[in-house]
Design a protein around this nucleic acid. Sequence first.
DNA 1: CGCATTTACCCAATCGTTTGGGTTGCGTGA
DNA 2: TCACGCAACCCAAACGATTGGGTAAATGCG
Lengths: 354, 354
Amino acid sequence: MRTEGTGRQPITLKDLAAELGIHPSTVSRVLHSTSEIARGAASSATAERVRKLARERGYSPDPGAASLRTRRTKAFGVIVPRLSDLVLATMYEGVEEAAAEARYSTFVMNSHDNPEEQRRKAEIMLARRVDGLILGDIHAGSELVQELSARHIPFVLMNRRYPGFPSSTCDDNLGGKLVADHLWDTGHRSVAVIAGEPYASTAVDRTAGFRQRWHELGGQISDADVVWSRFDTEGGREAAETLLARRGSTPTAVFAVNDFAAIGAMGAIRSHGLTVGRDIAVVGFNDTSLAAQLPIPLSSVRSPMLEIGRRAVELLRRVIAGEQVEPLRLTPELFVRESSAATAPAAARNALAG
Amino acid sequence: MRTEGTGRQPITLKDLAAELGIHPSTVSRVLHSTSEIARGAASSATAERVRKLARERGYSPDPGAASLRTRRTKAFGVIVPRLSDLVLATMYEGVEEAAAEARYSTFVMNSHDNPEEQRRKAEIMLARRVDGLILGDIHAGSELVQELSARHIPFVLMNRRYPGFPSSTCDDNLGGKLVADHLWDTGHRSVAVIAGEPYASTAVDRTAGFRQRWHELGGQISDADVVWSRFDTEGGREAAETLLARRGSTPTAVFAVNDFAAIGAMGAIRSHGLTVGRDIAVVGFNDTSLAAQLPIPLSSVRSPMLEIGRRAVELLRRVIAGEQVEPLRLTPELFVRESSAATAPAAARNALAG
DNA sequence: CGCATTTACCCAATCGTTTGGGTTGCGTGA
DNA sequence: TCACGCAACCCAAACGATTGGGTAAATGCG
C-alpha cells in the first residue's frame, strides 16, 4: 500500500533487480505477466519476492521508456467542442472512467467547434503519440475523418456521428420521435423546433426524427417552423425570439434539441408575458441535472451521456485491436415535467383541429 | 504546412540525419536551439536545410524518448471534483489554453470531491511522470498537500486555497462582501446564506466575507441563517426548503455561494408560491453563462474562471522553475439583475428597521 | 544411465533523444 | 611559421523498459 517515501528519483527496474540479485529482464517479465506466473520467466518463489519488493518500493514503470520500446503510449486523445458544455463534460467523465479502468490515460482538448482548431488539436495529440483519438465534435462533411482514416489512425466518434465511421452516440432520431409523440398526444398541433447547429448530427437527427414522426401522425410542420441556432442559452433565447416575433402564428409547443437552448427559450417566452407549461410547452434534450430542478421543471429527453463516453472507449479499444466495429446508438428516454405536462391550450387546439 | 502523407511510422531524427548526410545530434541541436542559430551547432545554411526537411517530413519528436532523456514530460496533471461542474470545466479551459501555449499537455481526472479518489488520481498522474499537478478540489485540512510537499512534488492549487501553499483563486472573501453591500443597500435586513460545502475554501470564504461585512454594516446574521449544502441545484433547493420551513422568519434575501445552488433555491422559492426578485431576492456566485439567461435573470458575482485556470499554469511553471510564489487572489465583480434588482419588500424592511 | 525437455534464469540489442565531449580544418595575429 | 581559436561538425553514452534468443542446471522418460 505504501508509496515511495521521500524517493527523489523514481525506482527503476534495474534498482529492483540489483537489490534482488537478479537480472532486470527477469523482473520485467514477472511484473508483466499478470498472473500467468509461469511463462518460463521465474520460479514462483522469485516472482513473489519481486512483486513484494516492487510493492514496497512503490515501483511504477516509466511510461516514456515503455512506450519507446513498445510503440504504444496507453493514452487516448479526446477532442470536444468545449468542456464547459455540460453534455460533453459528462461524456468525458464516462471516457475517463472507462479509460482508467483499462489503464489508459486521456488528454482532452477543446476545439471550440472550429474545424481548424480541431485539426490542430488532433495534430498535437498525435505528436504526443496517443494510441487513438475520440472525436466529440465532428462536423457534417468533415475532411478530418477521411484524412485520419487514410492515415490509418485509430479513432472513434462520440456524441456526433458520421456515416461510415465508428461512433458512440445517442439514438437522436428516436429521441426526436419521442418528443413528437408526446406533444401530439397532449393535443398540440402547432409546434416549432429550435434545431441547433446544422453541422451537428445530434441537431439534425433530433430535428429529423421529430419532423418525420410529426408527419406520420398527420401533423404539419414547415421549414419556417424550424429555427437553427447555437446550442447555448443565448442561442435558444434568440431562436425563441424569432419564433415569437412571427406575426400571428405563435406555436403552442417548442422542442429545443438541447436543454440549454430550452432554458434560453423559456427566458424569451417569459419576457413575452407568456407562461411556460401553460401558454407554451417546452421540451429540451439531454436531461441535464438542471432540467428537473429549474423553477419550472423542464421536460427533456434523457440521453445516456456517461454511457456514451464509456462505450466510445470500448469501441476505440476494439478499433485498435483491429476489429471491424459498427456505429452504436444508445436509447434515450423522455421525462415529462411541468414545462409540457398540461394539455395544449384549448384555443389553439380548436383552431387547428377543425 | 504539410504533415506526413501516409507515413506509417513517424519520422525520427535519424531519418532526417541520414537524408541530409549529417549526424543526428546535429539535427537535434538545430531543431532544439530555437532561433539561436549559432551555438556552434551548425552553419546557418545547414540549419536551414535541417529545418526545411523537418517541416517537409512533418517531423515531431517522440515525447517518450525525449522525456526518457530529459526527465521531463512537458505534461501537467489536473484534478478537479468533476468536469461536469461548469465552474471547474471553465477553469480547466483556461488551464488547457495556457498549457498549450507553453507547449505543455494536460491530463485531467475527476475526483468527485472524494479525498481517497483524489489521492488515487494523483498517484496515477505521478506514475505518468507529469512535471507537476494542479489540484482543483483540495479540502480544508487535506493531508495530500502536506504529503506532496514533503515529497517535493511541484503542485499548485486552483479554485480552492489552502493556507501556506501556492494557489490561484478568486478573492472569495471580497466576493461575499460585494453581495453584503448590495443587499444592504437595497434595503434588506433579514438575510440567509446557502453556504456550500464546509470543506471548500470557496464556500467558507464567500460566507465569511458576507457575514463579516454584514456585521460591519450593522446587520444581524446568526448561525441559523447559514445553511451548508451541496454545490449543485439539488443542494440549493434543499437548503432553501430548510430556510423557508423555519417558522415565522422568512428572509427577504438569499445569498447562494454558487449559481447552481441559487437556481435550485429559485425553484424552491417558486414552489412556495413566492416570486424571486419581488418577494425574495437571490444572488448567486460565479456568473456562469446561465445566470444572465434564466427566465428570471440571476444576480451573480463574476469570478474570472478562465483567468484562474491560466494563472494556475503560470504559477505551476514558476514553482517548477524553483521560484517562491505567493497565493494569487483574482478580483470578482458583482452583476445585479432582476433576481435582486428591486428594493426589499416594505413590510420586511419596516419590521426590522424599527 | 543417456538423452530430451523443461525450468529459471541471463544477455544484449533496441526504441529516439539529448548532451558532454571530442575532432577536424580553416583563418588569423604575433 | 606556429600556435590558437573558432566554426561546424561527429561520437557515444546515457535514459528505462522490453523481448528474442541464449545457457546452465534440473528433471523426466524409457
